[in-house]
Computed example of a mutant assay.
Amino acid sequence: MADQPATFAPSTEDIERLARAALARIPEPFAAHLADVVLLIEDFADEQTLAEMGMEDPFELTGLYSGRPVGEKSSFDIAALPDTIHLYRRPLLDEWVETGVSLEALVTHVVVHEVGHHFGLSDADMHALEDAAQ
């Protein structure tokens, strides 16, 4: 982001770079199970996703994990879609501006939260994982 003039909002690529850096800081034994998780950065969640989440305002959703938590997977699963972490750029940028939290810290928070869903972790466990990823 340092190479971008301050007059432009961080791009999808900027958010992805921050998210990949956050993923790289996830400690073992969690990191070993993230190699096949797909990371997608989009401006907003689509209408179907928002409806499934019971949301009308697309700015409410900053991230989403889709897939089955690691502990629920089975060798009998039929060719499922890959586990995916979705980050939604525009809601992230709005929260960044509204809260004053650094964009890196915000993206890390959302990434860790979604990784937590991948592992079926509780909120307390996610906070501990986030602290380890700082």
Rank of each mutant, 00 (worst) to 15 (best):
V110F: 00
A32T: 07
G100P: 11
G63N: 00
A128F: 01
E28G: 13
T49Q: 13
E47T: 13
L40Q: 12
G120L: 13
L121K: 04
F44V: 05
L40D: 11
P5L: 05
E114L: 00
M1N: 09
L61V: 12
A9L: 14
S74W: 01
L34H: 06
A35V: 10
S75M: 10
H109V: 00
F119R: 06
H118L: 01
M126K: 09
Y88S: 09
A24E: 14
F59G: 08
H113Y: 04
E56V: 09
R20N: 11
F30L: 03
I15V: 15
H127V: 01
A79T: 06
P91Y: 05
S122M: 05
E28A: 13
L40S: 12
D83W: 01
T84V: 14
E47H: 08
S122P: 07
T84M: 08
I85W: 03
T12A: 15
A80M: 10
D57V: 04
G116K: 00
Q48P: 01
V101H: 07
Y88I: 05
E13V: 05
V107R: 03
V101D: 15
A2Y: 03
D57W: 08
D36M: 04
D94Y: 10
H118N: 13
G54T: 03
E95W: 01
V107A: 02
A6H: 07
E56P: 01
D14Y: 04
A19V: 03
E47S: 13
H33D: 15
I15F: 06
V37A: 14
V107E: 06
F44A: 01
I78H: 12
W96D: 13
M53S: 09
D46V: 02
E42N: 05
R20F: 04
T108W: 01
V115Q: 01
E60D: 15
S66H: 07
F119D: 05
P27G: 11
F119T: 06
P58G: 03
P27N: 09
E52S: 13
A21S: 14
I41K: 02
G116E: 01
D94C: 14
A2K: 07
T108D: 10
R90Y: 10
V38S: 08
P58H: 04
V70E: 13
A35H: 11
D3N: 10
S75K: 09
V110Q: 00
M126A: 08
T99L: 11
M53W: 04
E130T: 06
Q4D: 13
Q134R: 15
L23N: 08
G120P: 08
T99A: 12
S74E: 13
P69M: 03
A128W: 03
G54P: 09
I26Y: 05
L61C: 13
D46K: 04
G63E: 00
Y88H: 12
V115E: 02
A124M: 12
H33F: 05
Y65A: 00
T7H: 14
R25L: 07
E130R: 11
F76A: 15
S74Q: 08
S11F: 02
G100L: 09
A19Q: 02
R17S: 14
D43L: 08
D131Q: 14
T99W: 10
A21D: 14
A31G: 09
F8W: 09
V37T: 15
